[in-house]
Design a binder for these strands. Structure first.
Lengths: 355, 355
DNA sequence: GGCTGGCACTCCCGGTGCATGATTGCCAGC
DNA sequence: GCTGGCAATCATGCACCGGGAGTGCCAGCC
């Protein structure tokens, strides 16, 4: 696998990618020299294109058609040829204002999803921040039945989560009140990761009548905080974009894309997987772990909260994607979420933006 | 508009609808007499078909093609010709077991959505039960910032909801504690519909330092309880089914269907709208309020909780829909939700929520 | 009077042939 | 090493055509 293309081949590949992404049609040598000012004749371009095809960067849908980039071609383009075109300061500010205006985390993420899909015209994927890094603000215990108690966790990000307890033996209102008090006394302000152990700790020293309850709470906290409940974790938006004309030919492909998008676990894993190679990450066509998505690409970036990686945003689109712009938008949304999140959590400190 | 078809026309219309729904191709007179044992010749059938077309029940895509039902034809079929074929006892039981096994409300609804889309092969729409009928169990106020307070409502069904308050003036921890106490003193056990007024009532008599806070809480309660927040209210599943071959020809149609499904407000209104005419309800093609969905139908049914209508389930599919089966499945899912819900709200079950 | 078989007609659909145009690969010449 | 020229390839659009499906109509039959 060649590592570097000479300058002219690179310019031709770049032009092919850009032209094809814009127009959606295979691009030929004549069109290239006329539209992209390459300064050589079409015959020369043809020779270069033949070499590029030989090397696997471009392909012909059929003889006597122009060339289209292969996954490898897009990959080279993204890695070596694409010019970063960050959003203008004005655009970034508008974006940030929109997100900062959200009343809570959920609305923030929902807006992020909407704006991401609108700006890119692809499907938006927004993963909620893991509760892990937030601090516990309050734990509320509410008795709903003789043996059933609802545990509600409230984090300092405004996130609220809950678990139902089904106890072996009935408890009294009084027991519940004692447990509530004990738990909050001990756990408020803790990192969520520490909370289960702390609660378990106070359970061991507690009087026997509240001990089972506290143990159950500890368990619920452990399970409840480790992973957000399904359906809360990832927000998918703008899926209608995937049915836009020019992206996919066969209905069959569109259907399998929608099937994949419905599997939240898969989408989540795909994003995680993508970010293993870097941040922001671009995964093109066959680089994705799913054959159904061989005609798709993913662009993803993570956003931080309280100094460490918290959640992920990304888009799923066709391999024929405007990578530079998509990267810019995804990164801008990620950093705006980061800033808006800082506003919501309350600490108004400035944080480093990444680019 | 003729009110009733004679017996033979009805039999022919019925056969046309059933055949077309099964095969997806326009059905001609020959096929009709051969496949449906009408006991007359094709010429006779042709004469009747001409009359049916004249009356608007069927149409020809083009000359020399068979006939397909019009919206009016489907409507007559649903109203007068379709044989109800309820699910078998075994199927109902399996369904009920599946739903009853859910750990909380959200999982219940999610499973309902999945099973509904699997069984019907259309897109499933599940509307969460309105909080309205439940009783308030606890209101928690959590201060997240100087002017931001999170209000968490906990209902006796285990449902948890929250709103963020953005106050004009900063409040102290102490004020928040006082307000929390006052609110819970007054509001616990109330029907959610009464709660806002009660809270507003105690606000008027409260000391000036907590009064703005209480008013804000009253307002949050009013807004928060009247309608669940977006994204929690309706669960859409099985959307990939809408891209199945044989339903829609043009990608354009598929796209507009997906666009509509993303607008939760619209979907909600559509379901409400449909149920105005009856329960279960069927809306066919142009009967739907949206022109984009002229090629779609909706089948919906409501489910009760605590004796009155609580939520809605339904499917969105092509007008070429298996109405009898869909009706049976939708009704079975609705009644299974009802029963599973009774188990959850009842004695020991758990129920869930959002966060 | 209503049903039926027959028949001419319409029109989609698939296949074929052909002209067109886009694009390529190659080569000889500069 | 680049360029212009040229033959070759092949999708695309169009016209044409025949088969087939389905229809509407009508005369005749029960």
């Amino acid at each position: 696998m060649e590592t570097k293309l000479d300058e002219r081949k690179a310019a031709i590949l770049k032009a092919i990618v850009q032209d094809y992404v814009r127009e959606g049609e295979p691009v030929g040598s004549k069109r290239l020299v006329e539209g992209w000012g390459l300064g050589v004749s079409s015959a020369t371009v043809r020779a270069e294109m033949a070499a590029l095809e030989e090397a696997g960067y471009i392909a012909q849908p059929h003889t006597s058609a122009g060339r289209i980039p292969t996954d490898k071609g897009y990959r080279y383009f993204v890695d070596a040829l694409a010019e970063r075109t960050p959003l203008s300061e004005h655009q970034r500010q508008t974006l940030l204002d929109l997100l900062r205006d959200s009343s809570d985390l959920e609305e923030l993420l929902r807006r992020a999803s909407t704006v991401l899909s609108r700006l890119t015209r692809y499907a938006a994927l927004v993963v909620a921040p893991a509760l892990d890094r937030s601090r516990l603000r309050h734990i509320e215990l509410v008795q709903l039945g003789p043996t059933s108690v609802l545990v509600v966790f409230i984090a300092d990000t405004g996130r609220v989560d809950k678990r139902m307890l089904d106890l072996d033996a009935p408890v009294t209102e009084h027991d519940v009140a004692r447990a509530r008090h004990a738990v909050n006394e001990a756990a408020a302000g803790l990192r969520t990761s520490q909370t289960p152990d702390v609660v378990a700790g106070i359970a061991t020293g507690a009087p026997p009548e509240v001990r089972p309850l506290l143990e159950a709470v500890a368990d619920a906290v452990r399970r409840g905080l480790s992973s957000p409940p399904p359906g809360e974790q990832i927000i998918v938006g703008g899926t209608a974009n995937m049915a836009a004309p020019g992206y996919f030919e066969r209905l069959e492909q569109v259907k399998s894309v929608y099937e994949t998008l419905e599997e939240q676990v898969i989408v989540l894993q795909m994003l995680q997987d993508a970010l293993q190679v870097g941040d922001p990450a671009v995964r093109i066509g066959h680089e994705l772990p799913l054959v159904e998505l061989a005609a798709c690409s993913v662009v993803a970036a993570s956003y931080d909260a309280a100094g460490s990686s918290a959640g992920t945003v990304g888009v799923l689109g066709p391999t024929r994607m405007d990578y530079p712009r998509t990267l810019a938008v995804v990164q801008a949304v990620a950093s705006s979420i980061e800033q808006a999140l800082a506003g919501i959590t309350g600490s108004s400190g400035a944080e480093p933006t990444r680019n």
